[in-house]
């Protein structure tokens, strides 16, 4: 057997791939890339905050009406211990609720994609669950399951399982039927097709659902706390408004935003770490189209 010699070039070693050739691994280029990525959002936020601070000071707006960013920052620093305590409560609700959403969401997606009967039976209910205003269900949950952590966990789960189910179902269905046929000719049974093709193919979709899900899960926790709670950032906001502690309300909002962004970033980082093939493929395509 003669070796095939159309392209005799050796395989690129790590760090010498196409990305390296285009200068991505050089420190200067890396720094420039990072700056390009982070500068615009940082700049626009800084500009907005500066404008806010200046306008509030110039107009002499009272603090209870609209505190300047500096006052919110002072509040964050001065009451950090109390805020941290409530943050942990809300974070626990989000984490527990999202874990439930993930388990239920993946389970439902697999059920829906595995049999037409289940799809017809379950999918409409999944969609219907999102048409009922969560704010209407939350007080009922309070009556049904109590005043503790559980109703918040349920609200978080209810609000964030939906994008997980919908995306994962799309992912499980995204498999090329010819690919399934190929596996069958190689002797694969239904379970093997599911495990070796459908599940890996659905993971990028699942992560899309997770990213949307974590972002809205924080909203779920806050709604749960508004309706009835004794702690947590949502409860803190409800307590602070009638006392005109507006800076504290804003401090809670800042923390909730940071929490949402951090959870989203965590999901994105996990996706990159777990699906390297997906990211390199996307980057390669982006480079080809430039």
């Amino acid at each position: 057997m003669k070796p095939f010699v159309e392209k005799a070039s050796p395989a690129p070693r790590p760090g010498q791939g196409p990305s390296a050739r285009r200068g991505y691994r050089q420190p200067l280029a890396l720094a420039a890339g990072l700056a390009w990525q982070w500068l615009p959002p940082v700049a626009i936020i800084a500009l907005a905050l500066g404008l806010w601070e200046a306008l509030v000071r110039l107009a002499g707006t009272p603090r209870w009406l609209l505190p300047p960013p500096s006052a919110i920052f002072q509040e964050l620093v001065a009451r950090h211990a109390m805020l941290w305590q409530h943050t942990l409560v809300t974070l626990t609700e989000v984490a527990a609720g999202f874990a439930v959403a993930l388990a239920v969401g993946i389970g439902l997606a697999i059920a829906i994609s595995s049999a037409k009967v289940l799809e017809r039976a379950v999918y409409p209910l999944v969609v219907a669950s999102q048409t009922v205003p969560i704010i209407a269900i939350a007080p009922l949950l309070l009556i049904w399951v109590g005043y503790d952590l559980r109703p918040k966990v349920i609200v978080v789960a209810l609000i964030s399982f939906f994008p997980i189910v919908v995306n994962m179902v799309d992912g499980l269905r995204s498999v090329d039927p010819d690919m399934v046929n190929l596996l069958r000719t190689l002797g694969a049974g239904r379970w093997q097709v599911f495990r070796k093709v459908q599940i890996p193919a659905s993971l990028p979709f699942l992560f899309s659902g997770i990213k949307v899900g974590v972002a809205v899960s924080v909203i779920g926790a806050v709604i749960g706390e508004w309706v009835g709670a004794s702690e947590g950032l949502g409860w803190l906001m409800v307590q602070s408004v009638p006392r005109f502690q507006t800076a504290l309300v804003f401090a809670a909002i800042v923390i909730l935003s940071v929490m949402g962004i951090a959870l989203f970033a965590l999901a994105a980082a996990l996706e990159r770490a777990l699906l390297p093939w997906y990211y390199t493929a996307k980057r390669e395509q982006a480079l080809e189209s430039t």
Binding site: D176, D178, M179, N181, L182, R184, T185, L186, G187, K196, V197, P200, A201, L203, L275, W277, Y278, A281
Partner: peptide
Amino acid sequence: RLGASAYMHQKDLLLPWR
């Protein structure tokens, strides 16, 4: 006879994650 012969498609059908 499914699995008795090896089959190759016009599309490469390589699994992108492998």
